[in-house]
Simulated assay, not measured.
Amino acid sequence: MQIDLNGKTALITGSTAGIGYATALGLANAGAEVIVNGREQTRVDDAASRIRAQSLSGQIRGIAADVSTDDGCRELYEQVPHADILVNNAGVFELTDFYDIPDDDWQRFFEVNVMSGVRLARAYTPGMEQAGWGRVIFISSESAQNIPTEMIHYGMTKTAQLSISRGLAKRLAGTGVTVNAVLPGPTLSEGVGTMIADQRGSDQSLADAGADFVQSARPSSIIQRAATVDEVANMVVYTASPQASATSGAALRVDGGVVDSLM
């Protein structure tokens, strides 16, 4: 399969590292003009420079904007008034017991993980609809269907993303704009690496530490290891492609079989 995204502009939020960065690189290698986003200009510039050096596309831009706020989303839209592909990847997570999560954290998680995607989809999908083609992808999580007891607030936001992506897909029925959610399982991103650092042996590789984490915390995993960011990005790039035109309103799992379900 040859994915060709030449002539398409892709905006990936939270793309200075992890799944977002791998997705930006994958879309650039498919020929898309890529907009890298993060909160800090130095990290954005560094990520854009690295993607530019590694990819087949020279059309890489970096824009710093805090998409967890309405002002940040407006600022980003003003600088990029059209996108053919929107990947709502920006997100936060942390291990916190339910009884220790203050109201402010519930609100912060909702603003970052949910409202950023809502605001940007609301801004960009009218242009996609007018053009008769577009892709909106929410990076959700297996935690949307398998709520983790150690981060219930995170799971709540990921379930919300599934509702929004499905509802928006139905709202845009017949327009040529597809809306989907991709659900990674445990993935060897920068954030997960930090999370398992305390459990990692001094002579243990990150991949081995990730496998140990999966086997203890997500024993239902079929692959019995954490995914790489590239493995998740491959699904996102396909979902953004013309070849995925019959896929909309779907929850596409890249969870290694963690969720024990036939559907």
Rank of each mutant, 00 (worst) to 15 (best):
G58K: 10
L95H: 11
I85W: 12
V114K: 00
E111N: 03
G117K: 08
R52H: 11
D97H: 10
V92W: 02
V112W: 00
V118P: 14
D84M: 07
E75I: 04
D97I: 06
E129H: 01
Q107C: 07
R119K: 14
A83M: 14
A90I: 13
I85Q: 05
E78V: 03
D84N: 13
R108C: 04
P81D: 01
V92G: 06
L76M: 09
F98P: 13
A65S: 09
G58Q: 07
T96M: 06
Y124N: 03
D104Y: 05
T69M: 09
A65E: 06
S68Y: 02
A131H: 13
L56H: 08
R122D: 07
R61C: 00
Q107G: 02
G58V: 05
A83N: 07
N88D: 14
T96A: 09
R52V: 05
V92Y: 01
D105V: 13
Q59F: 14
S55Q: 10
G62M: 14
L76I: 02
L120M: 10
R52Q: 08
G127L: 04
A83K: 10
Q59I: 15
D97E: 14
E129S: 05
E94Y: 12
D104I: 05
P102Y: 08
I85A: 04
Q130P: 10
R52S: 09
A90V: 15
L56D: 08
F109L: 07
M115T: 11
Y124L: 03
R52E: 03
F109N: 04
R119L: 06
S116R: 00
E78S: 04
V80K: 08
Q130H: 08
G91N: 02
E94D: 09
A65V: 11
D66Y: 08
F98T: 15
A65I: 11
R122T: 08
Y124S: 00
E129I: 10
V87G: 10
N113L: 02
G127C: 03
R122N: 07
A123R: 10
A64E: 09
L76G: 01
F98M: 08
M128P: 00
V80W: 09
F93C: 13
T69H: 13
E78G: 01
S55C: 06
F110R: 07
G62F: 14
Q79R: 14
D66H: 02
D105T: 14
R122E: 03
N89M: 02
D100F: 05
Y99V: 14
E75V: 06
I85T: 05
I63L: 14
G91L: 01
D70F: 06
L76P: 01
Y77K: 09
F109R: 02
D71H: 02
M128Q: 03
Q79G: 00
